[in-house]
Nucleic acid binder design. Structure first.
Length: 477
RNA sequence: CGGGGAGUGGCGCAGCCUGGUUUAGCGCGCCUGCCUUGGGAGCAGGAGGUCGUCGGUUCAAAUCCGAUCUCCCCGACCA
């Protein structure tokens, strides 16, 4: 028997942890909260990087790299920022045996060091906008960790931009938010809700934080990406000034934004099922696995056709693996690759060779179909496109089903207790109501949707006063 | 960081309460050979563990005591 994973329905959390290790996405490192992203998991990150980097560059940004260490005094310049991150900063106090004059923070995020450099680089309105992104690792000493969702060290991209005006910075903040939404929906096949964070939930040092939030299949929400309008907070403390078109000295307006390896955890939790992982073809480490049916002297009768199959598909740019290991039976391989979430499996045996065909089985629906070798490439691409779309549609249907309106606080509590999911309700805007709701239901305001106008406002779900806006609540990771 | 649970070959576990017949055991996996292969095959043989780590009690510690590291669950904090 093969090591089974805990069924998703039985214990979601254990299912998630079992699956990640069993499928070799990641493994625990011996230090608290740290993990190794193994090749199968890292391949997803590489796909995410490639597909997102294209978009970042297409919107005019360029990549650079800033230091891992940030002097303590830099972090102290923006107090709100420091207070927000202080509890989770790792400090370097020694270089070799010598104690440092000033402690260095291992970056929890790079606003401070980038702000310092921007003050050196920006002098004139002609230098603006500065649109820089970096792919990097950051460290946050979290108390509770979970592979991919929250680890002490994680990989991400962080964009840092500087602009002439508030309006321009705000436009950038929203442009990126929408870029993230489009990226996550198109490539990860995960539908999201875009919106603004409340002051309580916003980034330490930002004027406003926007986020995309998705629903995992256990009904809890996960923040998938954030985009911050930093206003002039960092510009003032790092003295990032430019002479504007009217020859007057101005502080720049900044933004910052990021997505992390957490997205890999989201893929697992949004699409996975009891048989294991289910990856959308666009980011799957492998898109097609070919399994030769090993009967008789299959190495002579079947294998050459399987190799040819692999070559044809590789030639058109697909990520293909031919599992020609003779020590495993076809049945074993079927289960194994299903667990690893490969979107499409092609079976080829003597029967298929004779008929110039392959048997295709899609992971999302476990459906078998026979494909003629004559129109192999087009057919496979077609199926992969369909899998990508149907995964998104399935997730969207789930999100729609699990997004509810609450008209009374009783209903609100009951939904969060029994069904979870997103709950839309009126909110008066008071932090007190927000805090009390969290205390009583464990739910937080995930976002205030961007298109507030369209939402029914009515009364605050908690205090019954006139609602200032509609908000989306959920229990979250 | 508080409350609870847990660390025993790669994985899942038993043994611990009541220290010594345990040469630390079982299932899966792994290695070798044969035989199989259209949904996780079978047989035979074999390798692999100073019981998380450090210290203490004892003639004797996987077992009792202390510390520490790590993981999991529930809270407080967070991409």
């Amino acid at each position: 028997m093969v090591t089974q994973i805990t069924p998703k329905s039985e214990d979601f959390s254990r299912w998630y942890l079992d699956l990640i290790r069993r499928t070799e996405l990641a493994d625990y490192a011996p230090m608290k909260g740290m993990m190794v992203i193994r090749p199968y998991g890292y391949a997803i990150w590489e796909n995410i990087q490639r597909l997102l980097d294209e978009r970042i560059k297409a919107t005019g940004h360029v990549n650079a790299y800033f230091p891992l260490f940030i002097p303590e005094s830099f972090l102290r310049k923006e107090m709100e920022h420091l207070e927000g991150f202080a509890p989770e900063v790792a400090w370097v106090t020694h270089g070799g045996d010598d104690e440092l004059e000033e402690r260095l923070a291992v970056r929890p995020t790079s606003e401070a060091i980038i702000g310092f450099m921007y003050s050196k680089w920006i002098k004139s309105w002609r230098d603006l906008p500065v649109l820089i992104n970096q792919w990097a690792n950051v460290v946050r000493w979290e108390k509770v960790t979970r592979p991919f969702l929250r680890t002490t060290e994680f990989l991400w991209q962080e964009g840092h931009t500087a602009h002439e005006s508030y309006d321009e910075a705000q436009a950038e903040t929203l442009r990126i938010l929408d870029m993230y939404r489009e990226f996550v929906e198109t490539e990860l096949a995960i539908p999201v809700i875009s919106g603004r964070k409340t002051d309580r939930e916003k980034f330490a040092g930002a004027v406003a934080t926007y986020a995309i939030e998705a629903l995992m299949s256990d009904g809890k929400a996960l923040q998938m990406g954030t985009s911050h309008n930093l206003g002039q907070h960092f510009a003032r403390v790092f003295n990032i000034r430019f002479e504007d078109r009217n020859q007057s000295l101005q502080y720049v307006w900044q933004t910052s934004w990021g997505v992390s390896t957490r997205l890999i955890g989201a893929l697992v939790m949004a699409h996975g099922d009891d048989s294991g992982l289910v990856f959308p073809p666009r980011v799957a480490p492998l898109q097609v696995v070919i399994i030769p049916i090993s009967i008789g002297n299959w190495k002579e009768n079947v294998l050459p056709a399987a190799v040819e199959l692999k070559n044809r598909l590789t030639r058109v740019g697909l990520r293909v693996f031919l599992d020609d290991r003779s020590e495993y039976t076809p049945g074993w391989k079927f289960s194994e690759w299903e667990m690893r979430g490969v979107p499409l499996r092609l079976e080829i045996g003597p029967r298929d060779v004779k008929n110039s065909q392959v048997v295709a089985v899609r992971r999302d629906r476990q459906e078998k179909s026979v494909i003629s070798l004559d129109d192999l490439e087009e057919k496979i691409k077609e199926i992969l496109t369909d899998i990508q779309a149907s995964l998104f549609n399935k997730a969207l249907a789930f999100q729609t089903e699990n997004t509810r309106q609450a008209s009374s606080y009783e209903e609100f509590k009951s939904v969060l207790e029994n069904k979870r999911g997103f709950v839309q309700a009126g909110w008066c805007g008071s932090e007190d109501c927000e805090a009390r709701i969290k205390e009583e239901t464990m739910a937080t305001i995930r976002v205030i949707p961007l298109d507030e106008e369209k939402n029914q406002k009515g009364k605050c779900i908690f205090c019954q006063k006139e609602a200032r806006t509609s908000a989306v609540f959920a229990r979250s990771y």
